[in-house]
Amino acid sequence: MKHYFNPMSRAITTDWMLKELDVQHERIHIDLAAKENNTPEFRRINPMGKLPVLVDGDTVVTEVFAICAYLADKFPEKQMAPAISSEERGAYYRYLFVAGNTIEPAFTLAACGYEHPEPVTAGWGDLSRVHTTIEEMTPETGWALGDDFTAADVVFGGLLDFAATFKWMEPSPKVAAYIERIRQRPAYQASHSAFS
């Protein structure tokens, strides 16, 4: 497997996921300042010219949350996802997809100083509903799915960590405590050491 990476990109989350899994892979550093992500060679791998990208044989996976889901399913013995037949799978999918489909778009728009003119027509609604959703979905103790840390925590918790770090939100005590539990994980610390 090849992981196309730069620590100043969203690839930090997929790097963290790979460290949680402790699986062998080749890290390929893409120099964003030198615009290596815009070369024809890289654009053949990912036409968006974005990081991260995971190449596993002939399979190319882009998008942070898709890569985390792919890796969790590729290595089921690492137990980073509930079994496909598990009743927990629905909640797991919700954590994976609410992050990219709802939370990040709403926060990105707000960080740019924009407000959707008709929030009911946007897939993410409005910031008030996003904050309520975050509060309701954040676990009081442990992890998103209970006692077991999974890719849902890398995705959902990782985005909350990012949002708090870059002042996209002021976390409630419950959310702040969850983020702190995330930050105590050795794999998180190894992947985020440049920001410590």
Rank of each mutant, 00 (worst) to 15 (best):
G90Q: 11
E88L: 14
L159R: 00
A144P: 01
L109H: 11
P82R: 00
A106L: 06
P186S: 06
A111Q: 15
S172Y: 02
Q24I: 13
S193D: 08
D15P: 02
M137R: 02
E135L: 12
S85R: 00
P52I: 06
M1R: 07
G142T: 13
D148Y: 10
T13P: 00
R43C: 11
L71E: 02
G142Y: 03
L96W: 05
L96S: 06
A110M: 14
A190E: 14
A66V: 08
A152N: 03
M48F: 11
T121R: 10
W168S: 06
L159K: 00
D56L: 05
T138R: 04
D161I: 04
F166R: 05
I12R: 05
P171C: 13
T150K: 06
P52L: 09
A152D: 07
T138I: 08
Y93A: 10
M80R: 08
N46H: 10
Y93T: 04
K167R: 05
P139Y: 12
V130E: 02
I30A: 01
T165A: 04
M80N: 07
P186F: 07
R181Y: 13
R129M: 09
D126E: 07
V98E: 08
G125L: 01
M1N: 11
H116T: 06
A99K: 06
L21E: 04
Y92M: 09
N101R: 04
R183G: 13
L109N: 12
I179E: 00
S9G: 12
R44H: 06
K50R: 13
L109R: 15
M17R: 04
A152R: 00
K78H: 02
I84V: 12
H131S: 12
A83V: 02
S193Y: 06
L96D: 05
E77Q: 15
E63F: 01
Q189H: 11
E118I: 11
P119A: 03
I30V: 13
S128F: 08
M169L: 15
A152V: 01
T141F: 06
E115I: 14
W143Y: 09
A151R: 00
I28Y: 00
V60D: 03
E135A: 15
V23I: 15
A163P: 05
N38S: 15
F107A: 00
R89P: 02
R183D: 10
I182K: 02
A151S: 14
T59M: 14
P117Y: 08
H25Q: 11
F5D: 03
F156E: 02
E88C: 04
R10C: 10
Q79F: 07
R183H: 13
L51N: 10
I30P: 00
A83C: 09
M169T: 06
Y70L: 02
L127N: 03
H131P: 03
Y114P: 00
Y92E: 02
F5E: 05
S191T: 05
A187Q: 08
G49V: 11
P76I: 09
G142S: 12
Q24N: 14
Q79D: 15
I134Y: 00
V120L: 03
Y70E: 04
D31P: 12
F5K: 01
K174S: 03
R27Y: 01
R181H: 12
P117H: 09
K174F: 07
L51T: 05
P82K: 04
K19Y: 10
K50N: 01
A11L: 01
A81G: 09
P40R: 09
